[in-house]
Lab assay of single mutants.
Amino acid sequence: MQAFVKTLTGKTITLEVEPSDTIENVKAKIQDKEGIPPDQQRLIFAGKQLEDGRTLSDYNIQKESTLHLVLR
């Protein structure tokens, strides 16, 4: 499924993900596309910070959801 990641600069990245993907996995995909190390990434969805060990389905993130990427 497709999900979108919006950065603070307003850029939107499109990712191909599965509901079973972990947040860690998603961060690795963002690193592949953008070169941002996962340890600098914080992903926010519905106002919550997403934890590495959880999956997209844990957070009820469905296709075409938009996550927000904040860098630390």
Rank of each mutant, 00 (worst) to 15 (best):
M1Q: 04
M1H: 05
M1K: 04
M1F: 15
Q2N: 10
A3Q: 05
F4E: 04
F4I: 11
F4V: 09
F4Q: 06
F4D: 03
V5P: 01
K6Y: 08
K6A: 07
T7L: 15
L8H: 14
L8E: 15
T9V: 08
T9A: 12
G10A: 03
G10M: 03
K11R: 11
T12H: 05
T12P: 03
T12A: 04
T12Q: 07
T12S: 06
I13E: 01
I13H: 03
T14N: 06
T14M: 12
L15M: 05
E16C: 14
E16G: 05
V17G: 01
V17P: 01
V17M: 04
E18M: 15
E18S: 15
S20V: 05
S20Q: 11
S20L: 09
D21N: 07
D21P: 00
T22G: 03
T22I: 04
T22W: 05
T22E: 03
I23C: 02
I23L: 04
E24K: 13
E24I: 11
E24N: 08
N25I: 14
V26W: 00
V26C: 03
V26I: 12
K27R: 05
K27V: 02
A28M: 14
A28G: 10
K29H: 04
K29F: 06
I30G: 00
I30M: 03
I30C: 01
I30L: 07
Q31W: 15
Q31I: 02
Q31K: 10
D32I: 13
D32H: 11
K33A: 13
K33C: 07
K33N: 05
E34C: 13
E34F: 10
E34P: 01
E34W: 15
G35D: 05
G35P: 03
I36A: 03
I36C: 04
I36L: 06
I36M: 05
I36Q: 02
P37Y: 06
P38N: 06
P38W: 11
P38Y: 11
P38V: 15
D39R: 11
D39M: 09
Q40S: 09
Q41P: 01
Q41E: 01
Q41L: 06
Q41H: 04
Q41C: 06
Q41R: 01
R42V: 15
R42K: 12
R42D: 11
L43W: 01
L43E: 00
L43M: 03
I44F: 15
I44Q: 06
I44G: 03
I44Y: 15
I44S: 10
F45G: 02
F45W: 10
F45P: 01
A46E: 15
A46F: 09
G47C: 07
G47I: 01
K48A: 10
K48I: 14
Q49C: 13
Q49N: 11
Q49K: 09
L50P: 01
L50N: 00
L50C: 04
L50Y: 01
E51N: 07
E51G: 04
E51S: 08
D52L: 05
G53H: 15
G53R: 09
R54N: 11
R54Y: 13
R54S: 07
T55I: 07
T55W: 03
T55N: 05
S57D: 09
S57I: 09
D58P: 00
Y59H: 03
Y59L: 05
Y59T: 01
Y59V: 03
Y59E: 03
Y59C: 02
I61F: 10
I61C: 03
Q62G: 14
Q62E: 11
Q62F: 11
K63M: 11
E64Q: 10
S65W: 05
S65K: 06
S65E: 09
L67F: 09
H68F: 14
V70N: 06
V70P: 01
L71M: 09
L71C: 07
L71E: 08
L71Q: 08
R72S: 13
R72Q: 13
R72H: 13
R72L: 14
